[in-house]
Every structure is written in structure tokens, then in C-alpha cells.
């Protein structure tokens, strides 16, 4: 350990604080998912369930649509993540490495979809989807999610690409590499942390999206997890224990996924690059 003791204490102290802030409401959700219905709302509230129960998890796993929707969500989130990554990589490379007329306009245009209030675009978007005959299909939702995922993916990847010294690419081109070759052999490997960040973003965002899924996927063969959460609510009641249990089932896989991917946040990929 190269750091002196005092700075290690500081790092651990802040890490503990960070973890506490992030986990505090989450712990409350875990506790709630283990409580019986009648214990959920008590005054004073209790941190420890009196009769811890897994019945909420049983409800979610065996007598709700959550397992089926989980599958749908995986397909849709993976699909839209892959598509937006593919589109964004090319677009960002174009924005980061080339000057051309109308670049600023094109870059702002990418953001337009996010500047329109959701409430304003739902109806015409539905019409567009119907016109393409994509209502109630995986592809329809995957496409619609481009409005949400592309702006950030393009903008972030552009800034990550810009951080890579252009000299590295120029050297390769002098050695006879094509533009595509440069992009795939040099730029992408060097921006791996950025790609991970954008992938996680696209996945998380589509995983949790509610209003588009609600309006564009009305058949249970394409409904996603957030709709499953809404199904625990009836007119005058919500099965909060089940909602919390289902939220755990929605949240933990993504956190674990990130745990396995965070190793790819490696520094020093370009050590020495600036000296050359």
C-alpha cells in the first residue's frame, strides 16, 4: 500500500459515508420487502421486522408476471443498449475527429428528442410506431429508446474520444491503417472505461423506463419490469411488500453486473502516450 496511513483513513472514512448515503433508503426497501403487510405502516416505524417473511418474494416470483417481464426487459434493454452503442460509436467518432459544416447543428439535433417534454411526444410517437407497425413489439420499444439513450451516449463518447491523443491515430494512419481500423483497433480499446460507462447508462435507463413502455407495450408478451411494478397497485391499494421485493429483484442484478464490469475502469491505458 503506497498511501500513508492518514490518507487511507480519510479514504475509508469517505467511502463509508458514501456507502451509507447510497444504502440508507435501499436498506429501508430491503427491510420493507421482508415485512408482513400489517407491519409495513406502523407508528413508530421499525428497522427490524418482527416476523421476517419471504412471502413477498414468493408472491413476486410465483404469482406475478414479474418473471416473464424480466425476460422482456432483458431482451429490450440489451437490444437498445447494443443499438445505441453501435450508432453512438460512429456518430461520436465523426463528431470528435472531424470538422465539417453543420457539426454544431448536428450535435444539437441529437439533443432535440430530449428537449421535447415527454407528455408532448407520446401521442405522435405512438402514431409513428403504428405507421411502422411496431406497436407491441420488442423492436418498437428498442427503437423508441434511442430517443432517450442516444443523446447521452453520443455526447459522452464524443468527449471520451476527444481525450485520446490524436497523435496515436495519426501514427497508425501513416502506417497505413484505414479509418475503421483506427477506430476499432486504437480508439475503442483506449476508451474502454468510457464505453463501459455509456453501456451501463443505456442499460439502466431502458431497464427502468416506465411511460413509453406503458403506452407502447400493451401486450404481456412485451411488457417490461416497471409495468410489473405498477401491476401491484390497484385502485385503492398497493402491495408495498411485493413492490419492494420486486424492486430488489430489479436492482440487484444490475448492481452485480456493474460490480463485474467496474474492473474495466482501468487507468493508465495511455501511459507514456503524451511523451511521444
Amino acid at each position: 500500500m503506497r498511501a500513508p496511513l492518514s490518507s487511507r483513513i480519510v479514504v475509508y472514512g469517505f467511502s463509508a459515508l458514501l456507502a451509507a448515503v447510497c444504502l440508507f433508503p435501499f436498506l429501508w426497501m430491503i427491510v420493507s420487502s421482508l415485512k408482513e403487510l400489517r407491519e409495513l405502516y406502523t407508528i413508530p416505524p421499525s428497522w427490524i421486522p418482527q416476523n421476517p417473511t419471504l412471502s413477498n418474494y414468493a408472491t413476486v416470483l410465483f404469482s406475478s408476471n414479474i418473471p416473464r417481464y424480466f425476460l422482456n426487459s432483458v431482451v429490450i434493454s440489451l437490444g437498445s443498449t447494443a443499438l445505441s452503442l453501435a450508432l453512438a460509436i460512429f456518430a461520436s467518432y465523426g463528431f470528435a475527429r472531424f470538422r465539417f459544416r453543420g457539426k454544431a447543428a448536428a450535435q444539437s439535433f441529437v439533443l432535440v428528442g430530449q428537449l421535447l417534454p415527454t407528455a408532448a411526444i407520446i401521442v405522435p410517437l405512438f402514431v409513428t410506431l403504428r405507421w411502422l407497425d411496431l406497436v407491441n413489439t420488442y423492436l418498437g420499444l428498442i427503437l423508441v429508446y434511442m430517443i432517450i439513450t442516444l443523446p447521452l451516449s453520443v455526447w459522452m463518447l464524443t468527449s471520451y474520444f476527444k481525450a485520446i491523443p490524436v497523435e496515436l491515430e495519426e501514427a497508425a494512419i501513416i502506417d497505413g491503417a484505414s479509418r475503421m481500423g483506427v477506430l476499432f483497433r486504437i480508439t475503442l480499446p483506449l476508451s474502454l472505461p468510457g464505453l463501459v460507462a455509456v453501456t451501463v447508462y443505456a442499460f439502466v435507463t431502458t431497464w427502468n423506463e416506465f411511460i413509453f413502455a406503458l403506452c407502447f407495450a400493451t401486450d404481456s408478451s412485451v411488457k417490461t419490469l416497471p409495468i410489473g411494478l405498477a401491476e401491484f397497485t390497484t385502485e385503492f391499494n398497493t402491495d408495498w411488500g411485493a413492490v419492494m421485493a420486486a424492486s430488489m429483484i430489479m436492482t440487484l442484478p444490475v448492481a452485480l453486473l456493474f460490480l463485474s464490469m467496474q474492473r474495466l475502469f482501468i487507468g493508465g491505458l495511455m501511459a507514456g502516450a503524451t511523451k511521444g
Binding site: 450508432l87 453512438a88 460512429f90 456518430a91 467518432y93 465523426g94 463528431f95 475527429r97 472531424f98 470538422r99 465539417f100 453543420g102 457539426k103 448536428a106 439535433f109 441529437v110 432535440v112 428528442g113 421535447l116 408532448a120 411526444i121 405522435p124 410517437l125 402514431v127 409513428t128 427503437l143 423508441v144 434511442m146 430517443i147 442516444l150 453520443v154 479509418r179
Partner: peptide, 20 residues
């Protein structure tokens, strides 16, 4: 060239938001 790289993303977005 730069615009060519950006074109696929721009077309997808245009198709989705033009009508809205």
C-alpha cells in the same frame, strides 16, 4: 467523412422525432 459517421444515428433520430 465526419457527417457520414454521424448519419446513421441522425437518421434514426430524425425518423422518430420528425412527426412529434
Amino acid at each position: 467523412t465526419g457527417l457520414l459517421f454521424a448519419l446513421p444515428a441522425l437518421i434514426v433520430l430524425l425518423a422518430l422525432i420528425a412527426y412529434p
